[in-house]
Design a protein around this nucleic acid. Structure first.
Lengths: 164, 164
DNA sequence: TATTGTTATACTCTATAACTATA
DNA sequence: TATAGTTATAGAGTATAACAATA
């Protein structure tokens, strides 16, 4: 059985039952902490759903971007998603090796790769979108449609890159 | 000057100015994506503020828990914060080596460590709390007090460990 | 000079497995 | 048998620096 003891001082408790459960204290109202917990919970669900497709959330994000903006360059993807060029390179390479995306030369600037989904890539993205929809549905079950909308709006305000 | 070209197909654009900016597409309304961006933005601020103290957000969270619940064991901290015992061990060791926390034996169960803050630890936590408050104030500037409260409530619902 | 894409590298966070000592 | 704490290790995610090719 689990040990029960307290060595020191009064513990603020909000017991629902028999055993003193630790309080989060200031963490309770820490936006950073709450964001981290929520993000981990959501990503765990998404990752589990994507496992069969051998994709991770970041890869699906890139695929969504390319699908919506065919011909995008890697630097543009990076700027839009807020990731480093150095980290996108191996990600794209992996997707290309699997025949999911292709990199076409750009007329007039030979430094650039124009990113496109292949037919295989579009099919795979379709399956990934089912996971995406299931996750959003789960969020809606927890928060309600209105709660989910509000959350998206608040998160967008926090994620913007303006300073101050 | 940045190159401008588009190799293929019509691009859905919502231009504010001269240059076509890529659309996020489905990512726009992806709770997972928005959570990740917001969490990165907030943690970047917190980490920067904590740099002088040589602390990271996770360490401060543990200190907050111990401060509020003196005598807590490592397993209890892990359960409350949703982290692995294996990852807390080196974290606590580092804090103990720096004289920030101490581990006291527990009467009646020699497997347990009762965690306490030292005087040094309390002083350091006090400085970390200033960073915490500054971050929450920044969030409030972006979202308003009511927006921040709503956000906390919504995130709590997502972070809970119940299934389904 | 500046930008694109690349490689190499390092650091953090997270997860699993296996061990010990205790219960 | 089960739990607390530890160690080792592996996998992602993210960051910087430096390079070649090109603008």
């Amino acid at each position: 059985m689990p040990a029960r003891r307290r060595t020191a001082g009064p513990r603020a408790t909000r017991d629902t039952g028999d055993v003193p459960r630790p309080e989060l204290g200031l963490l309770e109202a820490s936006v950073g902490y709450r964001l981290r917990r929520a993000q981990l919970a959501v990503f765990a669900r998404v990752s589990e759903g994507l496992r069969l497709l051998d994709l991770r959330p970041g890869q699906v994000g890139v695929l969504m971007m390319i699908d919506r903006n065919p011909g995008l360059t890697q630097a543009e993807v990076c700027a839009a998603l807020g990731i480093q060029r150095a980290n996108l390179a191996p990600l794209v390479k992996g997707l290309e090796r699997r025949g999911i995306v292709e990199r076409l030369p750009v007329r007039g600037d030979r430094r650039l790769n124009a990113l496109h989904l292949t037919a295989v890539g579009r099919r795979l993205l379709g399956r990934a979108l089912a996971v995406h929809r299931a996750t959003e549905a789960w969020v809606t079950r927890r928060l309600g449609a209105e709660g989910r909308r509000r959350l998206l709006g608040l998160l967008e305000l926090l994620g913007e890159d303006r300073t101050g």
